[in-house]
Structure formats: structure tokens, C-alpha cells
């Protein structure tokens, strides 16, 4: 009897991907679809497609899908999840969509602790419109609209999204992964699956940032693009878990937020000495 070691995930449709050769969207789509398969949630999941290269995600994912306006996926996902609290809702967004035009929606969905999962593809460029400066483009990075390199005095600094969101009480899981090697792909898969599981358990808002490439607009071969990403992006956007309330010992974001509020109200508590903050003269 032969053993199946790889097959197309059930939660992907038959539609061929429209992504460029070497683009990491395909890998991440597969990881999301495998997660739906393994958790047996394709039939109860609603996905939200953004504006950007993955705008056609609604053709690729087999679950019910909604296409959202540029940047508004977290608001649309909020409406969906509030209407369908028993379903799984995820949004799949790029860096321009999530961190530029949709930053307000991103931050507020996170701080509300919406029980949704965001898959955030950060490749430091606007892909679909042909390679413009993104909110996550690196200092000195050359793009169509930063032809002499990103001048941080003019264009400001890139945003480290998961670090920023991890400061918000509504966030249950904020993790940065990449998919450049089989090992990292497996780690990314574990992170994505954990995010969906946290959502199903009602822990809080979950976001997985995937540091990605754009060989086409970076003007590099797929393998050179991965190397450029390792050399330039990963030092600026270090991989890791930036917030995980369950790993911190809490059942959900409400418990984590209450403990944090108590610790902060305790005043000059030494870091790591928050066992009984009220005892530290916490009268505030």
C-alpha cells in the first residue's frame, strides 16, 4: 500500500494560483488550507480576501469567502464574526492593506480582542500595483516610489507590526514567522494552526505575520529573493512569539489584561515581581 506524503489540501479549490513564480503566497495559502483540513473547519470558516496580490484568495480557498475593500478586512471580519460567533473567521492581508490604509481597522480589531485570525503577508512592497514603497519597506530600500531608496527622514520608518500590536490587551497571539526553509515552513504552519485554535477556544485576537518575498518587484530570482529577505528583512523583523497569553498562563485576553492592569496599578513593582502587586502599595 502506498503512503500519501503530500496532496493538495481539501480546503483549496481547483483554481490554479495566479501568483508569480517564487512568490510565498502559494505556500501560505497551503498552510492555511491544511490548517482548515486538520481542524475540520472548512465548512464553518469564512475568509476575508484583501486588496492586493491576494485579492483573488476568494477563488483559491474552498471555504466561504468575502472580498473586502482595501484595508477594511478587519472591520469586515468583525462584522462577520459578530454575526457568526460560532464560525471561524480569518482575514488574509498584505502589508499595504494591513499596515497602511487599514492600520486603524487593524489596531481597533486587535484592541477589541475580536476573535478572528489575521494572516499578514509582509514582503515590504506593494506587489499588485507594481512595487511601490510600503509601510514595511526597509530603510534605503529601492522601490518604484522610493527610487533613491527609502529615506527615513522623508518617508519615516518601517512599522514592526506584531511588536506594536503585542502591546494591546485584546491580542492573544502575535507571532512572526517565515517560509524560506522546510523547517521554517513547519514552524509557520504550527503558528497558523495555533492561531486558529486560539480563535476557536475564544482566547482573543490572533495575528501571524509571515515575512515574505516579492521576487518580481524586488527584481530578484526566487532564491536570491529568499536570501535578500534573510539578509535584510529578518534582522529588521526578527522571528518569534511577541505575545502568547496562553503561554503566559492565562486562559484568554481578559484574564491577561486584568493581571496587567493590576501589575501596572501596583506602581513601582520590579519587573518579574508581579506575583502580588496589590501588596506593593497599590492604592491607585
Amino acid at each position: 500500500m502506498s503512503k500519501v506524503v503530500y496532496k493538495r489540501p481539501e480546503a483549496l479549490t481547483e483554481a490554479p494560483f495566479s501568483y508569480c513564480p517564487g512568490c510565498t503566497h502559494g505556500i501560505v495559502h497551503r498552510l492555511v488550507a491544511e490548517t482548515m483540513d486538520e481542524l475540520r473547519i472548512e465548512g464553518t470558516t469564512v475568509g476575508v480576501a484583501p486588496v492586493g496580490c491576494s485579492v483573488l484568495a476568494y477563488e483559491f480557498f474552498g471555504c466561504d469567502m468575502v472580498q473586502a475593500a482595501h484595508g477594511r478586512a478587519p472591520a469586515v471580519a468583525t462584522g462577520l464574526k459578530r454575526a457568526l460567533p460560532g464560525n471561524v473567521v480569518f482575514a488574509y492581508q498584505g502589508d499595504g492593506d494591513l499596515a497602511s490604509i487599514g492600520m486603524a481597522e487593524t489596531v481597533h480589531a486587535a484592541t477589541r480582542g475580536e476573535k478572528i485570525t489575521i494572516i499578514f503577508i509582509n514582503n515590504a512592497i506593494y506587489g499588485m500595483t507594481g512595487g511601490q514603497l510600503a509601510p514595511t519597506s526597509l530603510p534605503n530600500q529601492i522601490t518604484q516610489t522610493s527610487p533613491y531608496g527609502r529615506d527615513v527622514n522623508e518617508a519615516g520608518f518601517p512599522i514592526r507590526v506584531v511588536e506594536m500590536l503585542s502591546t494591546l490587551d485584546g491580542v492573544a497571539l502575535a507571532q512572526r514567522v517565515t517560509v524560506d526553509t522546510p523547517k521554517n515552513v513547519r514552524a509557520a504552519k504550527r503558528a497558523i494552526k495555533k492561531a486558529f485554535e486560539y480563535q476557536i477556544e475564544g482566547v482573543g485576537y490572533t495575528i501571524i505575520e509571515v515575512v515574505s518575498t516579492c521576487p518580481t518587484n524586488w527584481g530578484l530570482s526566487p532564491s536570491d529573493a529568499l536570501q535578500w529577505m534573510r539578509d535584510n528583512m529578518l534582522p529588521y523583523y526578527p522571528l518569534g512569539v511577541y505575545k502568547d497569553v496562553k503561554a503566559d498562563g492565562f486562559a484568554n485576553v481578559a484574564e491577561a489584561a486584568a493581571a496587567r492592569a493590576l501589575a501596572l496599578a501596583g506602581g513601582n513593582v520590579e519587573k518579574g515581581d508581579t506575583a502580588d502587586p496589590a501588596a506593593e502599595g497599590g492604592e491607585a
Binding site: V48, V66, V76, G79, L80, E105
Partner: peptide, 12 residues
């Protein structure tokens, strides 16, 4: 955001 939440709830 409000109208897009309506969009989401209505889609549901």
C-alpha cells in the same frame, strides 16, 4: 469601519 462591519454582517 462601521459601514464595513455592516458589509460583513450583511454578507453573513
Amino acid at each position: 469601519a462601521a459601514i464595513n462591519m455592516v458589509y460583513g454582517a450583511s454578507a453573513a
